[in-house]
Design a protein around this nucleic acid. Sequence first.
DNA 1: ATGGGGATTCCTATCATGGGAAGGTCAAGG
DNA 2: CCTTGACCTTCCCATGATAGGAATCCCCAT
Lengths: 131, 131
Amino acid sequence: MRIGEAAGATGVSAKMIRHYEAVGLLPAAARRDSGYRDYGEADVHALRFIRRARDLGFSLSEIAGLLALWRDKARASAEVKRLALAHVEALEEKARDLSAMASTLRHLAAHCHGDARPDCPILEGLAGERG
Amino acid sequence: MRIGEAAGATGVSAKMIRHYEAVGLLPAAARRDSGYRDYGEADVHALRFIRRARDLGFSLSEIAGLLALWRDKARASAEVKRLALAHVEALEEKARDLSAMASTLRHLAAHCHGDARPDCPILEGLAGERG
DNA sequence: ATGGGGATTCCTATCATGGGAAGGTCAAGG
DNA sequence: CCTTGACCTTCCCATGATAGGAATCCCCAT
């Protein structure tokens, strides 16, 4: 199948498929006489793998490692689990950071009456007049 | 004070101070005869404001809006509150997204025995053989 | 006057993704 | 046979926030 069909079948845009090939995440695709890239079932599986990993927040370099493990039928599952749990930690830390930001800002907003008057604890907080 | 001192006093790198000026977040700084930028107390306040807003996850364009409101002594606090709460929603949504990713991945990892054996539910999950 | 730390501008990189231009390929239909 | 239009190719540029580095210049203390 051509790149557009592969894109439709996997949810990865044609643009990104070419990009993944360019950065070495995928091997160079087979080509037809016309120069068009030609994809098979194995390619579609790899693209779906990449897309799911991206949906789980893995970076492209992390995915490169996961793909290598995936293709290595003899890999130890311990290695995969280690990578996955390290990533879980990173995701949870980012989530905590965002929640803390939201909480701080919500507290500031709670003290702002939010009407036509100009005084505003949110701006005062950002200016450092408190907190 | 020179840019390095302003950077030290605010926690914003000299590099970023120049950048904020270049993108219009800050007005062009005063210059000495030497060409060096010259900062005063008002600039330091603005830089601290920006830094705190960045720490709360506001984008530079959002900060541009907040700065305008901050400088407008007659603004209605309702507008500030609206922006702040919209940002809180966005932060919380991102935090939820990350938590959901972490949770999904943690579930996959929980079913992976993580030893020397090659079979691994994490990779199977990414490959789409389940879920 | 010299050394060194700080300043200036400008270019490059990161990360993942997308937009768009200029041109080649292919199938359908007048 | 030739056109049309959808698809493909490569290449360049942009995003957003931040940092690294080069070449050059300024300032101050020894």
